[in-house]
């Protein structure tokens, strides 16, 4: 005996066409989601590193006069007296050099390049600090000292990253809407092609749900096939992008990576597209059948 869902679609024209479009939609959604999640990951890493930190930059001193050590010391004492500061330490010269290495290549940073000194400041957890006032204070004691409020800078960065994520969300929503529209059109076409068979099924006593299930199951398979196709191509794309990013130099690009949770979210895409396809087809068919006698 035949399968349960074989009344209309054993050789349907929509069998190849719809999965291709759904595949393209899932591909776009997967890339937008992956981008959004990678950005989220970067924000999180940076937030952890930079939350509650300040950086003070002291101009390079005249080497003949012993460099900038006097300025560094007076800046340090001001910082350590400031309420809310947990600790403050000069950044070792080697660390500064390694930060700059990508710009100078293997030859390294020239010895005679006057480099500013950096002081890293960590605030006590939850401490509120008036960065502008501290900056003035420092400037009076150490002329040309610059205070970077990493928290404020981070806030701008987070705001930018969040708007990128919003855009990605809009892309996913548009892609989802387009996929639904495609399913709607394909289902309506199927309804009109199979009008007479539907009438026959009604005549021999089929309930609307039975007829709808035939369409639903077909749509489920198209949605799932499209989802798998789109996800497969998206996976290849992401792997290629990851390799290219690696080769471009890890130091210059913020480290982007996807966690297991992110991969699971991407893996859900074919299931989601199958589910959306199923529910959309059911809604369309049930509504159309209700109009029939």
């Amino acid at each position: 005996m035949a399968q349960k869902y074989d009344l209309f679609f054993r050789q349907a024209a929509s069998g190849r066409f719809v999965p291709l479009i759904i595949g393209a939609m899932v591909y776009l959604a997967a890339l937008a989601l992956a981008g959004s999640m990678a950005i989220g990951q970067v924000i999180e890493t940076w937030s952890e590193d930079l939350r509650g930190t300040l950086t003070v930059q002291i101009p390079a001193g005249d080497p003949a006069a012993g460099g900038a050590s006097a300025q560094i010391n007076s800046a340090l004492s001001i910082l350590l007296e400031t309420p809310g500061v947990d600790w403050a330490e000069p950044v070792p010269v080697d660390d500064i050099n390694s930060l700059l290495r990508p710009w100078f290549g293997e030859a390294g940073v020239p010895d005679d390049l006057p480099l500013p000194a950096l002081i890293e400041v960590q605030l006590l957890p939850g401490a509120e600090l008036d960065a502008a006032k501290l900056g003035q204070h420092l400037d009076q004691a150490v002329p040309d000292a610059i205070l970077f409020d990493n928290g404020a800078w981070l806030q701008h960065l987070v705001r930018f990253a969040r708007s990128v994520q919003w855009v990605a969300g809009i892309v996913v929503a548009l892609v989802g809407g387009t996929a639904i529209a495609i399913i709607v059109f394909a289902t309506r076409a199927g309804l009109s092609v199979h009008r007479r068979t539907i009438e026959l099924l009604h005549t021999i006593g089929a309930k609307d749900g039975y007829i709808a299930r035939q369409f639903q199951y077909h749509s489920l398979r198209l949605g799932f096939a499209g989802g798998i196709l789109g996800l497969a191509i998206a996976t290849v794309t992401l792997i290629v992008l990851a390799i290219l990013a690696e080769q471009a130099g890890a130091g210059m690009l913020p480290k982007m990576s996807l966690t297991w949770e992110h991969l699971i979210v991407l893996g859900i895409l074919p299931v989601a597209s199958a589910l959306i396809a199923t529910l959309t087809a059911r809604a369309i068919v049930m509504r159309a059948l209700r109009e029939m006698p």
Binding site: A2, D6, L7, R10, Q11, R196, T197, L200, H202, T203, I204, G205, A206, K207, D208, R290, P293
Partner: peptide, 24 residues
């Protein structure tokens, strides 16, 4: 509408053009 399928099952219909499903 809900009551129609049960009633339709008590009626047999034969059409001029048969209306068989060709792939079954």
């Amino acid at each position: 509408r809900r009551a129609l399928p049960a009633l339709r099952r008590r009626i047999g219909v034969v059409f001029q053009d048969f209306r068989l499903l060709d792939h079954l």
